[in-house]
Amino acid sequence: MVRYVVIGGGIVGLATAHRITIDQPDATVVVLEKEPRVAAHQTGHNSGVIHAGVYYKPGSLKAGMCRAGQASMLEFCAEHGIDARVTGKLIVATDAAELPRLRALHERSVANGLPVDLIDGDQAREYEPHVAAVAALHVASTGIVDYAEVCRVLADLVTKGGGEVRLGARVTGLRRDGATTVVETTGGAFVADRLVNCAGLHADRIARLAGLTPSARIIPFRGEYYELRADRRDLVRGLIYPVPDPQFPFLGVHLTRMVDGSVHAGPNAVLALAREGYGWGRVKPRDIVDEVAWPGLWRLARRHWAYGLTEVRRSLSRKRFAASLARLVPGITTADIVRSGAGVRAQAIAADGALVDDFLIEQAPGQVHVLNAPSPAATSSLEIAKHIVARFDE
């Protein structure tokens, strides 16, 4: 009987545990989550989008898993009564200078086999009457869902499948014992024949505890959200995104109508002062030391300091945030938006300063470590889970 220990009760960890219970019903599976609930961090703080796979390099893990994940996530939600909707979205060019990038995105989408249409401004306003666009990419297969609800269902399925989800169990140490790994936690010790590290914001630290030298380090970027006041939600029907800058993995401040009818705006991307730094007041010296000690951060900063400064200014000014939204929907004013929380993205950065663009999964005997799984990891989670389980059989 194979003993699996999965570290992390976010969507990738829970999807992996669920996959194990399906594929290997005789195995034992324990999910260790340090928080008192599942989906407490990245999964529970994202914008709830089921991505189609527009942005990702053809042939990459992200491209393949996102497209497959869009279908498998919708199928999973339908099977388990979770409210998920295919709404489509617009990626809009607000001036002629953005048209080459929009066309390049269209070409990439076609290469990824996606149902997309390059449309003019008038056609864009048939979907979103208040949008400012000289042209747009309509992505029909994009959807929305509450990923925290998906996690609650996954956790229940893990338990029903004979597994266990241990909450409040923070990992304090890892050590090899022959062919097994002993996982020491605040809730006791667990022996793993196969260890899966899905610790998100702390994934690189868990890998180092296990004796690995990860090829990248997690640097936390906070993404802050506003939402439209209830009486202004009519300005947005679905999802409206800007044309992204291909130098960065961030998609830019955008507008998303959620499953509950609210319209969220954001996120931006500012360097956080703690791995769980959901506000400027959250500062953790150990995390800051981790950041500044990594040469990749300094190399990134030297290349892109102007971008970072713009994001900080937008973070500190509601007026600037509203102005970014008004580029997409001119009717939005500062008075129309209110604060609506934040999330922290676990972004892996290589030593040379490169932002790791694809999912990064590294392996050691009896161990798989997920070291970079930002968006579209939630969309792709059921496919990432299959990939992780298969890695043990290679």
Rank of each mutant, 00 (worst) to 15 (best):
T333H: 10
C66V: 12
L157G: 02
R232Q: 11
F359W: 01
N112V: 00
R108E: 13
V243E: 09
S375C: 04
L167R: 02
M65H: 05
A192G: 09
G81Q: 09
V134M: 00
H80R: 10
S72R: 03
R237N: 15
V329H: 05
T87G: 04
A133S: 02
I22T: 15
A96L: 13
D122C: 14
A377F: 01
H80I: 14
P285L: 11
E98F: 12
M258Q: 09
G341W: 07
G178D: 15
Q70L: 06
A378S: 01
W305I: 07
T185E: 00
I206W: 00
E291A: 14
L255T: 02
T16H: 08
Q70P: 07
D146E: 12
A378H: 04
T180E: 08
D287F: 06
L255C: 02
L105Y: 10
V289W: 15
A207L: 00
A199N: 11
L137W: 06
A97L: 13
T94A: 13
T28E: 10
V263K: 03
R19D: 15
R345F: 00
A68W: 10
R37W: 13
S324Q: 08
A322H: 05
H254E: 06
L255N: 14
S381L: 04
L157V: 13
G277A: 12
L228P: 01
G223M: 11
S340I: 13
V329F: 07
Y127D: 09
Q123W: 14
E164Q: 02
G266N: 07
Q367W: 09
I11Q: 08
R257E: 05
S317K: 06
T43A: 02
I384C: 13
A78N: 08
W280S: 08
P267E: 05
M73P: 01
I361M: 05
Y226N: 11
E362D: 04
I288V: 06
T310K: 09
V312W: 04
E107Q: 15
F392H: 07
A52Y: 06
S381H: 08
G69N: 03
R233M: 03
G366L: 00
A230G: 13
R229T: 02
D146R: 01
A378I: 03
H138V: 02
R194L: 11
G279S: 08
G353Q: 02
G188A: 10
D358F: 04
F221T: 03
G143R: 01
R313E: 12
Y226K: 04
V292L: 14
L297D: 00
A148D: 05
G44H: 07
L195D: 01
T181F: 02
L195E: 02
H45F: 13
E224A: 10
G161H: 01
V289C: 01
S324V: 15
